[in-house]
Computed example of a mutant assay.
Amino acid sequence: MVIAEENEGQGERETDRWPDIPGDTAFTIKIPEADPLVRAEFPAHVTVLYPFVHESRIDAQVHRELSGLFAKHDSFVLTFAEFDRYPGVLYLDPRPHDPVKSLTVDLTQRWPELVPYRGLFGAGLDPHLTVANGEGPATQDAAYDALQAELAPLLPLRCHVHAVQLIVWDGERWRDRIEYPLARASTPGRAGPHQMR
Results as ranks from 00 to 15, higher is better:
residue 14 E to F: 10
residue 29 I to P: 00
residue 32 P to M: 14
residue 32 P to K: 11
residue 12 E to T: 10
residue 11 G to K: 06
residue 30 K to F: 06
residue 12 E to P: 08
residue 39 R to P: 02
residue 29 I to L: 10
residue 28 T to N: 04
residue 37 L to D: 12
residue 24 D to V: 02
residue 19 P to H: 11
residue 25 T to Y: 00
residue 36 P to Y: 11
residue 39 R to H: 12
residue 25 T to K: 00
residue 29 I to R: 02
residue 16 D to Y: 09
residue 31 I to A: 09
residue 14 E to G: 04
residue 27 F to L: 00
residue 25 T to F: 00
residue 30 K to Q: 14
residue 40 A to F: 06
residue 38 V to E: 10
residue 14 E to P: 04
residue 29 I to G: 02
residue 23 G to E: 11
residue 9 G to P: 01
residue 22 P to F: 04
residue 17 R to P: 04
residue 11 G to S: 05
residue 23 G to P: 07
residue 9 G to T: 03
residue 31 I to E: 10
residue 12 E to M: 13
residue 40 A to V: 02
residue 27 F to N: 03
residue 20 D to I: 08
residue 32 P to W: 10
residue 17 R to F: 14
residue 39 R to G: 03
residue 14 E to I: 09
residue 26 A to D: 00
residue 20 D to L: 15
residue 7 N to F: 05
residue 15 T to C: 07
residue 9 G to S: 03
residue 15 T to K: 13
residue 21 I to W: 08
residue 41 E to F: 07
residue 15 T to I: 12
residue 30 K to T: 12
residue 21 I to E: 07
residue 32 P to N: 10
residue 8 E to Q: 12
residue 28 T to I: 09
residue 14 E to N: 07
residue 17 R to M: 13
residue 35 D to H: 03
residue 41 E to M: 08
residue 28 T to V: 04
residue 36 P to H: 14
residue 41 E to L: 09
residue 21 I to L: 05
residue 34 A to I: 08
residue 12 E to V: 09
residue 14 E to R: 12
residue 7 N to T: 04
residue 35 D to N: 13
residue 37 L to Y: 11
residue 31 I to V: 15
residue 34 A to N: 08
residue 17 R to G: 10
residue 39 R to T: 06
residue 33 E to D: 15
residue 12 E to A: 14
residue 39 R to Q: 14
residue 37 L to V: 11
residue 13 R to Y: 10
residue 22 P to G: 03
residue 24 D to K: 01
residue 11 G to D: 03
residue 8 E to R: 15
residue 28 T to W: 01
residue 14 E to M: 13
residue 18 W to T: 09
residue 29 I to C: 06
residue 26 A to W: 00
residue 12 E to D: 15
residue 15 T to V: 15
residue 21 I to K: 09
residue 33 E to Q: 15
residue 38 V to N: 08
residue 38 V to P: 08
residue 12 E to H: 15
residue 27 F to I: 03
residue 29 I to S: 02
residue 9 G to N: 02
residue 30 K to R: 13
residue 29 I to V: 10
residue 22 P to Y: 05
residue 26 A to K: 01
residue 27 F to V: 06
residue 27 F to Y: 00
residue 33 E to Y: 13
residue 7 N to M: 06
residue 20 D to N: 15
residue 39 R to A: 14
residue 39 R to F: 04
residue 10 Q to S: 02
residue 38 V to M: 06
residue 8 E to D: 07
residue 7 N to K: 07
residue 34 A to K: 14
residue 18 W to E: 03
residue 25 T to H: 00
residue 8 E to C: 01
residue 11 G to H: 07
residue 8 E to K: 09
